[in-house]
């Protein structure tokens, strides 16, 4: 499904506009990565796309259909949202958490059927944590929890998937596990929008990148062209070096982004960096 955003504006309070004139489009099977510093509006943008926040101006089009004309339940069948943090109070079993992804497909007075259970179990298998099915969600590790939430959104069977920093708080192995799943889903034809703090993820996995600063995109396009040292400096306000590393497993070179401070080997105040 094709996602188009045209002239989106959003503000929590009338004084401060968080999103200013956001426009972009993402094709079916694309991974659109949103980069930008903390507080630039990435989460707000995803919440607007997920139908959680109502934009003040502008339009969101799903295959050309205006989002505001679609009912909430119908919308949730098309667009899945993985929030950055999820606070569960009650110790639901993992399978019960995943089953909740079936909510948009169920009427107000129905409970999940055998079929819904099968879909939920299939989603758990797809992200590789079927063995955690009966464990309480709250007892799982951060990486496992993230996988559970991704399984939940798969049980939702959307066509557009929004992920808000899906790899933050995760170790490298789990980061890769999540990105592997996201890539697979894109290959299966899902449209993906995800925010991230890691420019290297954008360079490695995305088909399109947008750099967001102060509520607007300063550049959108091909990762190779968009992610430059100048733009990263503008976004994060520190000097960043993009290095090209020869890929030992193939001929395509990989780009990595490293803060210049780390490269210079200078001892920072407080000892955050030490000479390598």
């Amino acid at each position: 499904m094709r996602l188009e955003v045209r002239g989106l504006h959003f503000s929590y309070t009338p004084e401060r506009e968080v999103l200013k004139d956001i426009s972009f489009d993402v094709e079916r099977g694309d991974i659109f990565c949103v980069l930008g510093p903390n507080g630039c509006g990435k989460t707000t943008l995803l919440k607007c796309l997920g139908g959680i926040l109502k934009p003040n101006k502008g339009s969101i089009l799903l295959d050309g259909v205006e989002a505001s004309t679609i009912s909430r339940a119908e919308y949730a069948k098309l667009v899945g949202y993985v929030p950055q943090e999820h606070g569960l109070v009650f110790p639901y079993k993992t399978i019960d958490v995943v089953l909740m992804g079936r909510a948009p497909h169920l009427g107000i007075f129905s409970t999940p059927s055998e079929k819904d259970y099968r879909i939920a179990e299939e989603a758990l298998r797809e992200v590789g944590i079927y063995h955690l099915k009966d464990r309480p969600y709250v007892e799982l590790s951060g990486g496992e929890r993230q996988l559970v939430i991704i399984a939940r959104v798969l049980a939702q069977q959307p066509e557009i998937l929004l992920l808000d920093e899906p790899t933050s708080h995760l170790d490298i192995k789990n980061q890769m596990a999540i990105l592997r799943i996201v890539t697979k889903l894109a290959e299966q034809g899902m449209t993906i929008v995800m925010s991230t703090h890691f420019p290297r993820h954008a360079l490695l996995f995305s088909s399109k990148v947008g750099i967001m600063v102060g509520g607007r995109f300063i550049a959108i396009g091909n990762p190779e062209e968009v992610v430059t040292e100048e733009r990263l400096k503008k976004a994060y306000d520190i000097d960043i070096k993009i290095l090209t590393v020869k890929n030992p497993l193939g001929d395509r070179a990989i780009k990595v982004c490293i803060p210049v401070e780390a490269l210079s080997g200078r001892q920072l105040v407080g000892g955050a960096w030490s000479r390598v």
């Binding site: 899945g80 929030p83 109070v89 909740m100 909510a103």
Partner: peptide, 23 residues
């Protein structure tokens, strides 16, 4: 009793419940 399963979804909190299509 009929709507009881929805309480599970509501207990996820406002944003997640909205994202799961609940009014």
């Amino acid at each position: 009793v009929l709507a009881r399963w929805r309480l599970n979804v509501l207990s996820l909190g406002e944003e997640e419940a909205k994202a799961l299509g609940i009014d």
